[in-house]
């Protein structure tokens, strides 16, 4: 198991505090420690997705059944969600997306940049309340704020975790 970084442990704690025990994901390196923490907790149901939009429908169905959860992805996955976000909006399903950013801060791979540069605006256009977080020390409060607004306000929310916090991937360059 990869030990979670302290900000990843903070996310895990916030999810548990809000009883968000269904965690769906397409993996991103930035979420490694959190995914491992979720998978090693028997009270958390982790659901590996083939594409991020599945997670919006999955968590909407879970909410219909009285369960809460969160959706983990990297920024390129946000683009895969666009039409499915209309489900959250038109039905006012709570949604918490935790998005690790690529193509944003010192990105080495130009193929990540188009989506990374439009993630926040795209989500806002789709009616998602978006929060950015640059500093590991702010993660707990920011994810907590988003979680509360989603489950208590029936809102679609996203926390964009900055590439600056994660450290840019360089492939040795």
């Amino acid at each position: 198991m990869n030990e979670p970084a302290s900000w990843q442990q903070d996310i895990f704690d916030v999810l548990m505090d809000h009883d968000m025990r269904m965690v769906a994901y397409v993996p991103d390196a930035g979420h490694i420690g959190l995914i491992d923490a979720c998978q090693s907790d028997p009270d958390v149901t982790t659901v590996p997705l083939t594409t991020e939009e599945e997670g919006i429908a999955l968590l909407s169905g879970a909410w219909l059944g009285g369960a809460r959860g969160a959706l983990l992805m990297q920024s390129s996955g946000a683009g895969n969600c666009m039409n499915m976000l209309s489900l959250a909006k038109v039905c006012r399903f709570p949604l918490l997306m935790l998005i690790t950013m690529r193509g944003q801060w010192g990105e080495f791979n130009p193929w990540q940049v188009p989506m990374g540069q439009t993630t926040a605006e795209m989500l806002k256009l789709a009616g998602v309340i978006t929060f950015g977080v640059d500093d590991g020390g702010d993660v707990r409060d920011t994810v907590g704020a988003a979680a509360r607004m989603s489950v208590h306000g029936n809102a679609a929310t996203a926390v964009l975790i900055s590439q600056r916090l994660l450290g840019a991937k360089t492939f040795g360059n």
């Binding site: 269904m22 599945e54 909410w63």
Partner: peptide
């Protein structure tokens, strides 16, 4: 494209 995923979330819940 989301019907099965929605049913899955509901079934797990």
């Amino acid at each position: 494209g989301g019907a099965v995923s929605m049913g899955l979330g509901l079934a797990l819940a």
